[in-house]
């Protein structure tokens, strides 16, 4: 008996050793990635967190590092994000819906789909160059918040289109058939079913694309964002008729990552502390955005059962 068992046990032992070696290699790779990341964040936090205070948010940049703040940068980031969202969400969702629900399933559609996926992988500075040529020089929109919003909007458009398509595709055909079977039109089916059921996924995509856009630096430098801004954009609320103003769209601006970059490129170490603090603010904003995205996805998963 034992003669028969021995080769089997030996065989099993040999394969278990391979199992063990591979899981060890996987664990080590994971630890390496995690530890490096953690070290970076801890280093940034140790340097930057003590610098974060109310004044840091309420002050303009200054020649004196201890007086300098990120007021113009975070207001600029906020305005640019708002413009980005306003341009990318309607375009991206409409394009995604069209491709999934309306477009005939042929090679042209497939080609377009392939190109959109490729577009998502293009280096962001290329978008900056294109924006410089089109928005700044051709359309003469200036080195403004509007130009920045449009540029980043184009940059994240593929992400929104792809996530829209994916969440629309996840809706089973049975649901579409149920809607059409009682005599609904295409638009009614989209309006009452497709959009509501996919909105969780779409929203997640939107937030993820905004959290990508908020950290973008290269394309904004290319279109000529300022690095030292000691003023705020025009207020959207005015005291004289018509009380609202879109002048802020045409104003020059800076954003958080550019402010950070600017401080980092100074020789004085005090400015580097400011940069680290800005980095922490940026990191927290991204984390919060991603957290919101995860929460929304979780809520919608629970609600949508087919």
């Amino acid at each position: 008996m034992s003669n028969q068992r021995d080769p089997i046990l030996k065989n099993i032992r040999r394969r278990k050793v391979v199992d063990f070696l591979f899981s060890l290699a996987g664990l080590l790779s994971l630890l390496f990635a995690l530890v490096t990341l953690l070290a970076l964040v801890v280093d940034l936090a140790v340097t930057g967190v003590p610098r974060i205070s109310a004044e840091f948010f309420m002050n303009f940049p200054s020649r004196f590092p201890e007086k300098a703040g990120i007021l113009s940068a975070w207001v600029g980031s906020l305005c640019v994000m708002l413009t980005t969202a306003c341009c990318a969400i309607p375009l991206g969702v409409a394009a995604g819906l069209y491709l999934e629900e309306y477009a005939p399933k042929n090679w042209i559609t497939q080609l377009i789909e392939l190109n959109i996926i490729n577009l998502a992988g293009i280096p962001s500075i290329t978008f900056g160059l294109m924006a410089l040529g089109i928005f700044v020089y051709k359309l003469e929109l200036g080195q403004s918040i509007l130009t920045a919003g449009l540029t980043l909007g184009l940059l994240v458009l593929p992400i929104i289109i792809v996530t829209t398509r994916e969440s629309v595709r996840a809706i089973p055909n049975l649901i579409r058939e149920a809607s059409y079977a009682v005599g609904a039109s295409k638009w009614q089916t989209i309006r009452y079913h497709i959009l509501p059921y996919s909105s969780g996924g779409i929203l997640t995509g939107v937030i993820i694309s905004l959290s990508r856009a908020i950290g973008e630096t290269a394309p904004l430098i290319t279109i000529g964002a300022l690095t030292f801004v000691a003023f705020l954009p025009t207020s959207p609320v005015q005291s004289v008729f018509p009380f609202v103003s879109l002048q802020w769209l045409k104003d020059p601006f800076t954003v958080l990552p550019i402010q950070m970059f600017n401080w980092l490129s100074r020789p004085q170490a005090e400015f580097h502390v400011n940069a680290a603090a800005t980095g922490i603010v940026l990191l927290l904003m991204t984390l919060v955005l991603n957290g919101v995205a995860i929460y929304i996805r979780y809520r919608f998963r629970k609600k949508m059962k087919w």
């Binding site: 049975l174 149920a178 079977a181 009682v182 005599g183 609904a184 949508m304």
Partner: peptide, 18 residues
């Protein structure tokens, strides 16, 4: 759409809207 407004259907698998 006209045909479906006049002829109703119940599917093999239940498919209520969420």
């Amino acid at each position: 759409m006209e045909v479906r407004m006049r002829i109703g259907m119940v599917f093999q698998k239940p498919n209520p809207f969420p």
